[in-house]
Write a protein that binds this DNA or RNA. Structure first.
Lengths: 63, 63
DNA sequence: TAATTATGTCCAAAACATTTGACATAGGTG
DNA sequence: CACCTATGTCAAATGTTTTGGACATAATTA
């Protein structure tokens, strides 16, 4: 499952570390998700969505 | 994390078994998610969303 | 250049999601 | 009532996500 996290995070000018802290996870988690190592849990997807100010349906690309 | 799966599934007149099959999981998985035993993975959330014809952001209630 | 910050990666363990198989109960229909 | 379908639940096994600690490299800045 692809996502737009890295692009949107950079547009907002924040680091993986800052995004991680906002979402209550560690930096490696953000890094793995941005690089498609695995998908976030649903709760984390919503936290990312909220922090990055886009809807879950926009942030992730299904299919 | 709450969700509207049971309500929408009933409105569509389908069983847990049918929804499960559509989404490629077993009946117990749908049952557990409807009864808030655990949250689905992000991929399953998108499959449920697609089958139930509502957006992920509408199907699940975060906060 | 040297120092600092940001990112990518690895591993093992912990936490969480899903399956399989089974049994119990609730609701409707003959 | 007896039958059948749908739903709820449980425990053990398996698969996936997240953590914590560590190290390497890339990019930025003094």
């Amino acid at each position: 499952m692809k996502n737009k996290i890295k692009a949107i995070r950079k547009k907002l000018g924040i680091t993986q570390e800052q995004l991680a802290k906002e979402c209550g996870v560690v930096r490696q988690t953000i890094n793995c998700i941005e690089n498609d190592k695995y998908d976030p849990t649903l709760v984390l997807a919503f936290k990312l969505s909220k922090t990055l100010k886009v809807k879950v349906d926009e942030l992730f690309i299904y299919e």
